[in-house]
């Protein structure tokens, strides 16, 4: 199994069935004993009395592809993973829908869980992806990561 199943970008929301499909890809790998996954969902944050209805994602896709590959190789080597999967939405994702899915497959639970956590942090801080939070009507604000 490769480091990361390309393409990482999904137009719109990530269907929940994709989570199962990604796990299923590793069914033949009997050295895998643990999966850890992170699923990010768009939250209807309330800002100044108005709720976020959707996030519109854009990205510098060529740079994401290159840099994610470097992150994946690094994380896979350091945690001795069987592989990882990263899926991220582009375009509009409504509140309550899935926008990010990260899966780490390893022999044992601890490296799988630690690797998944590091991947999520690095995806949020190192990849050139931007979210524009839309409110009801024409209003919006640019998302900031904490």
């Amino acid at each position: 199994m490769g480091v990361t199943a390309k393409p990482i970008f999904v137009q719109g929301a990530i269907p929940a069935t994709m989570v199962a499909q990604c796990v299923q890809q590793y069914a033949a790998e009997t050295t895998v004993g643990a999966y850890s996954c992170f699923i990010g969902q768009v939250r209807a944050d309330v800002v100044g009395g108005k709720s976020v209805t959707a996030i519109e994602y854009t990205a510098y896709t060529a740079m994401v592809d290159e840099h994610l590959e470097a992150i994946a190789v690094d994380v896979c080597q350091r945690y001795a993973l069987n592989g990882i999967v990263v899926k991220h939405s582009l375009g509009t994702v409504l509140a309550g829908e899935i926008c990010l899915f990260v899966l780490a497959a390893a022999g044992h639970r601890r490296p799988a869980m630690d690797a998944c956590g590091e991947l999520v942090e690095r995806i949020k801080s190192e990849l050139p992806i931007w979210g524009k939070e839309h409110f009801a009507g024409e209003e919006y604000q640019w998302k900031t990561n904490q």
Binding site: Y60, I123, S125, L127, G131, N145
Partner: peptide, 10 residues
Amino acid sequence: IAFLPPFSGG
């Protein structure tokens, strides 16, 4: 060359 504002993926 690309100008990148603070990232906010995920």
